[in-house]
Design a protein around this nucleic acid. Sequence first.
DNA 1: TCAATTAGGTTTGCAACACAAACTTGTATG
DNA 2: CATACAAGTTTGTGTTGCAAACCTAATTGA
Lengths: 107, 107
Amino acid sequence: MSLDNKKDKGIQSVIQIDRLVHEPARMLIMAILLSVENADFLFLLKQTGLTRGNLSSHLSKLETAGYVSITKEFVDKIPRTLLTATDGGSDAFENYRRRMIGILENC
Amino acid sequence: MSLDNKKDKGIQSVIQIDRLVHEPARMLIMAILLSVENADFLFLLKQTGLTRGNLSSHLSKLETAGYVSITKEFVDKIPRTLLTATDGGSDAFENYRRRMIGILENC
DNA sequence: TCAATTAGGTTTGCAACACAAACTTGTATG
DNA sequence: CATACAAGTTTGTGTTGCAAACCTAATTGA
């Protein structure tokens, strides 16, 4: 009856999960960025299936949080937006993953 | 370089995850309901640490979705709101858990 | 006896968010 | 040059999560 055992103590902490990573669209973006060497806007657009506007605003939020760095360059006069996960972003994602798996495996 | 391997095909599906369960407060509510015989409003209030209003509105959403059934009774003239996870709710939660673990374990 | 308090929830109000449509800026093409 | 296209960004909108305010009924106390 009591919820004071290890199993249940864990799940309470789901309330404090990192919501920036928790949002599915951003979780996907981070996972992709961490799995490839380099990614640009169009690559992410294809891989995620998000609309351009949506992708753009999620990237801005991740940048503001310091999880992703955005670099703009020109290749043959065509703009190219390069996205990279920062160390902080990598840590945040790994923490999220670990905690979330821990929580879900004990329900 | 390509993302067409098993690992990455999985994560794309995070976009279609069940958002009703994905919300931390509701995930917690469902997990608690599935782990105890019976729970009333006040018990959930204590266990979750949510405010009354917040708990109430999350429960309404879960009820609307058919994940939780809400029964009101009176005990010594005091109202008591009984919450139970439905079979559908139990299935939804289990599916969420399985899919989410699968996704997170392959990043 | 009847104001004030407490208990158990619900409704309302609001800031933040996710999303897509519309816009912007710049390049190629007819 | 104007028309279309490409690469993003900004704007607009409906939805959400949250807590404050509210409601209803029971209890207390003066």
